[in-house]
Design a protein around this nucleic acid. Structure first.
Lengths: 221, 221
DNA sequence: TTGTAAAGTGAGTAATCACTCATTTTCGTG
DNA sequence: CACGAAAATGAGTGATTACTCACTTTACAA
């Protein structure tokens, strides 16, 4: 399964790719407007007429390119899914782990820095994903497969790697996994989606978060 | 400000209270049906006719009790807000901190146990809150005031307390606060809302989470 | 039992919705 | 320029929406 994963991800990215080159100027405007309005008002509360208006196109133009409103949503949300977890499957990423003495701090630093930037750059789309995922059963099923088949296995191997190196405590991997994923996602979502208006020193926040994740907030002995 | 807070919370809870005693049987049915449908399909995608149908009442009956559909939403979502952070302001809670040698582990254990149960019991309503809060400006403003005026100050004092006792590390309180709130919320949301179908040993998960929060997931020296 | 206010009803309404389609405009190519 | 195809248009459509209101039923105190 693990050999297939890299190919699978390539397909996934290809399949999900926006493929901007083949898109009309007006089509790009539509996607841009729809992204804004979906993230502002939610999918259901957004109307195709308003999207058309903000995009500066006729309403019919939307339906030339997308059969339904849901098609439009999926064309926005779909491409982001694979990209969100893509770094896990990149060659650069594997190399980092192949180096036998990679410090786990450096590993976390790279992940947090990269995903924080990613989340900030795609904040609007991520908001849409978070909002609409619970109400889109097909998409939800797809994501669940993505995680249970690929992401979970990948992260488990990463922790096995660092555990074997004696860099993290010995504990059931699903607990370590749950805790650190919560920490990473919590930190990224807090600063990129929930409270983007609070300005922070990224490097400091990242370093502090890693320190707390590895050594806790209790009094150091 | 701090003296007013207790009174303020009493008012808040009173004001927000469902006050079930004064409600008609059909009105309770409406709230129950609306809660289900809102959490299943989202506020905008839910129709009043479907709510009426599931509640077993005429559509007009809904509008006897609630001027608008949004009124119905707020009557469901409103009462939960104060309750979510209520424990912070309870007398029992203050007592726990007045005892000079309360272990921070015991403190976290009480908080996690209590809020995990709360989130499970109110999972549907909490889902609605999470989904709709970004799209309800008045409600969002209310929540922001709630946190910046009361919750933030309260939690800061708690950490000052434990910091003075030497039970947690010395670091900018906003960082400790952000990290531990993320940890608590992340753990509760994961098991109560995101993945309620995964059965866990609550006590074990709570204890392990507290241990990781205080001492990290790094190798123990 | 009777009077009355509150609770409940459901057909009706104007507005809005996603989507269609006949027509026009734009664009790439020979 | 000429021409065929793709892109874009916007008025039109049936369905659905939140909400109203004239009316009926229920609950309860006198």
């Amino acid at each position: 399964m693990e050999q297939n994963t890299e190919q699978w991800l390539a397909d996934m990215l290809q399949l999900m790719e926006g493929d901007d080159s083949k898109k009309t100027e007006k089509q790009l405007k539509i996607i841009q407007a729809a992204t804004e309005i979906f993230s502002e008002k939610g999918y259901s509360a957004a109307s195709t007429s308003e999207i058309a208006q903000r995009a500066g196109v006729a309403e019919g133009t939307i339906f030339r390119h997308y059969k339904t409103k849901k098609d439009l949503l999926l064309s926005i949300v779909g491409p982001i899914l694979a990209k969100t977890v893509a770094p896990l499957f990149m060659r650069d990423f594997a190399k980092l782990l192949d180096q036998p003495y990679t410090q786990i701090e450096d590993f976390y630093r790279a992940v947090l820095r990269d995903r924080l930037d990613f989340a900030r750059k795609n904040a609007k789309i991520l908001r849409i994903v978070i909002q609409e995922l619970p109400f889109q059963p097909e998409l939800l099923a797809q994501v669940k497969i993505l995680f249970s088949e690929h992401v979970f296995a990948r992260i488990s191997r990463i922790y096995a790697h660092f555990q074997a190196q004696g860099q993290i405590m010995e504990a059931p991997s699903f607990r370590v996994l749950r805790f650190s994923v919560t920490t990473i996602v919590g930190m990224v979502l807090t600063h990129a989606i929930l409270m983007p208006e609070i300005s922070i020193d990224d490097e400091e926040e990242i370093n502090w978060t890693i320190d707390a994740l590895l050594h806790g907030i209790g009094k150091r002995s």
